[in-house]
Design a protein around this nucleic acid. Structure first.
Lengths: 212, 212
DNA sequence: GCCTATATATAACA
DNA sequence: TGTTATATATAGGC
């Protein structure tokens, strides 16, 4: 947009300028390029502010449109910040996109619908599985489990910070939920405690925000 | 837009303000209350626009701060819209908040850390479980599975719309990702196709949502 | 969808 | 953190 001095040519210099010794207390919001922020400090500030903004937007969308929204965020340090009823949404999501089930019977997702007694294999009680199918059943369950945890070891961080906004057990609850400061407050629950020193590369904080 | 001059108000009032030709082409963005939108049509438009905005914000945050972000959204019709590498994030999330494991050995999460051969019970191969523990193991797995699917039947809708933005297999990939139109384009894949008529129960949305 | 006028989100500072 | 000046998001309308 405009950049340099638009010059004051179009304005009459009639009255003296504002006596403010503050020609412009700040530069205001500057345009930035959407690319990785290198400066640790600035990045953290941005992460914090924008995460807050993102969650707020999600909350508004949820209320305005009665939608269920869940957000999972891993900071680069491996810390988790979540919004919404993530657990319920995950379960629902897993059902609608059953990627975890491919390991059953050859891994062809086409078999997914196979039923016995009107139930999908994963819906049947373990005890109801016939002896002769047990081995295969176990293998399937194992695969299910494996798929759940297979990539677990790929990430290192272990610090968990839960930031939960509204929890909509019931869809309608989302509508009731109001965006009060209370609701948007960060609940930094240290998880399983332990050494609190995060051993951050540069003594940058980001951890001393325990409140509430 | 101009800024050089502190007060445009001091500009010469010589010419009459805007000629009346443009009374105001639009009212511009109006302030709205954050509460459930009743009008079906307006709600859908808002949902669409704000969802796009939300995902865009998420993408920016992801790139700017190198964070991994996943968003799951269920419209009130039960359609899913997701952003980010949801699968990977879910797995990671499940590890850090192993709520699914409470069913093991009395449901005390305190036992969660119990290890055998340096592996958590859920990490062990099914085949390695001693015969005498098999029954209990199966019960535990069953519980795990049950917890995964327990609430499955509570939702009715089956339409699945996947809207996937970037897929960050690797954390660093997020940084590379650019916010092109291509990336932000909605990929509306009907899932398993079928009747598209949702049969939404009159105005009362969320239809047969079974409540608890 | 595209457009305009405003309501909001936020980058740079203190 | 809180403030300020701008960059963006978007409600209402085609």
């Amino acid at each position: 947009m405009e950049d340099g001095e638009p010059s004051s040519t179009t304005c009459l210099p009639l009255t003296e300028q504002k006596p403010q010794q503050n020609p412009k207390s700040t530069k205001g919001r500057q345009k930035i390029e959407i690319k990785q922020i290198d400066e640790e400090c600035r990045r953290q500030v941005t992460f914090s502010k924008r995460r807050t903004g993102l969650f707020k937007k999600a909350a508004e969308l949820s209320v305005l449109c009665g939608a269920q929204i869940g957000i999972i965020t891993f900071s680069r340090r491996g810390r988790i910040y979540t919004f919404g009823n993530v657990d319920a949404l995950i379960e629902n999501y897993l059902r609608k996109t059953p990627v975890m089930l491919r390991s059953h019977r050859g891994g062809d997702v086409a078999n997914e619908g196979e039923e016995v007694d009107g139930m999908k294999w994963w819906e049947r009680a373990v005890e109801s599985v016939p002896e002769e199918e047990m081995e295969e059943y176990m293998r399937a369950l194992s695969g299910l489990r494996e798929n759940l945890w297979i990539r677990i070891c790929q990430l290192g961080g272990d610090r968990t910070v839960q930031m939960n906004a509204p929890v909509f057990q019931d869809p309608m609850a989302a509508i009731e939920w109001k965006m009060t400061d209370e609701n948007l407050t960060v609940r930094n629950d240290q998880g399983q405690a332990g050494n609190d020193g995060y051993l951050d590369v540069a003594g940058v904080p980001f951890l001393s925000q325990s409140r509430r």
